[in-house]
């Protein structure tokens, strides 16, 4: 069925809910893995409360970086300015900017967590927080980049508009990696 632009069709409650709810359930099942990882790390988080403070940002930032890169890539594909040629230097500018953003944000996260911990009295040394935040953060950034390229390319080849389904799936999958890597790296660094 072709819905003409501006008709009420795609704005019906039934069609919005019917289109989105199955995707929401799928995404919830994906992110459930992050929840199970968090639950299994409960003792670690109880002992080092400052790690809990870092969790929402660790989980969210990878997804945010993936979303920024994916929408930039899909816009370029729509405009026909990208063919996924490894010699395309603008692609490398995108990758470089994502890595630089990740380095900035995860440094800021470590410093922010350190300051909050110092004020609240359950901190860890800044060097430890920097090691945990940057190792897990940069790994997640690399995963976000790989997934964004793969998903945008796949949906381009399959003729699916990446904005509808690909970007939410990439963001949520990267969220899961963020949690698993963060808990793994923290446990390893703290010898838990």
């Amino acid at each position: 069925m072709v819905v003409p632009q501006g008709s009420l069709g795609t704005w019906e409650v039934r069609s919005i809910v019917g289109n989105m709810f199955p995707l929401l359930i799928l995404l919830s099942i994906i992110v459930l893995m992050a929840g199970i990882t968090l639950e299994s790390a409960e003792e670690l988080l109880e002992q080092y409360g400052i790690l809990a403070v870092m969790v929402p940002t660790m989980v969210g930032t990878g997804g945010n970086l993936g979303a920024i890169l994916s929408s930039r890539l899909s816009t370029r594909l729509h405009l026909g300015t990208t063919e996924f040629d490894p010699t395309d230097r603008v692609l490398w500018a995108n990758v470089g900017a994502i890595l630089a953003l990740a380095a900035t944000i995860f440094t800021a996260l470590a410093v922010g967590a350190y300051l909050l911990g110092a004020v609240l009295g359950f901190g860890l040394p800044l060097s430890t927080l920097l090691v945990i935040s940057l190792i897990s953060g940069m790994s997640v950034a690399v995963i976000a980049i790989v997934f964004s390229f793969a998903a945008t390319y796949a949906s381009y080849r399959l003729g699916i508009d990446p904005d509808d389904t690909t970007i939410p799936i990439v963001t949520n999958v990267v969220d899961v990696f963020g949690m698993i890597i963060f808990i793994g790296v923290s446990g390893f660094v703290l010898g838990f």
């Binding site: 409360g49 809990a52 403070v53 940002t57 969210g60 930032t61 953003l101 944000i105 909050l116």
Partner: peptide, 19 residues
């Protein structure tokens, strides 16, 4: 991303209380 970081740190403080 910096605005999101501030929101994330606040949410983290609440999560710490939730544990």
């Amino acid at each position: 991303l910096l605005i999101a970081l501030c929101g994330g740190l606040f949410a983290g403080l609440v999560l710490e209380g939730l544990i």
